[in-house]
Amino acid sequence: MEPEYKSKYNAHLIKVILVLIVLGVGGIAAQALFIPSDFGEYGHYRTGAVEDEINRLVRNQTNESCLKCHPFIKKIHLGGVHKTVSCEFCHGPNADHAVDEKKIADMPVKRGKDIKTLCLRCHNKIIRARPEESIKMIAMPQHLEEKRVQTTHICNQCHHVHAPMKWVIEAKKAHGLIKEKEGLFPWMN
């Protein structure tokens, strides 16, 4: 009645189940092989990733790192109201300039109109959102008119960029408008 078949009636089902088992075991073996050995030590991540992050290159350093090699600028910079201003904000990151205290490239020094743009990033009065008490604000060109100088003047013609009031104070001292030892901003001393 039943024709003769080469395979048993359930041969295909057994084969399918075997294939699935092989796939499953293969998958588990692949997991063991390919998951990084430091994965999951502290959480669901690779511990090495923390080390990778720690070892990232520090590109911006501190003013101390810069001033160590620039004693002349250091004297001026730390003596003025700009001492909290970062060297690298204006000049770029130290990592592009020095490696192990050896110079590898020149730092950009801003000149001309760029200086004015830079100064106004902080000191522009017309950006009204600035809290008034924190730093000195000026409006351009009213400030130049008030000081009776040409409106084409660039900030650093009167202000030393590292110590903005340095020349102003020196001029005032020379004219006897203020006493020696006394700065314009006594609270800065």
Partner: peptide, 16 residues
Amino acid sequence: TRCIGCGSCCVADKNE
């Protein structure tokens, strides 16, 4: 109350 919007932080961050 202290931020003056100078963007120093953004510059430093981009450089870093």
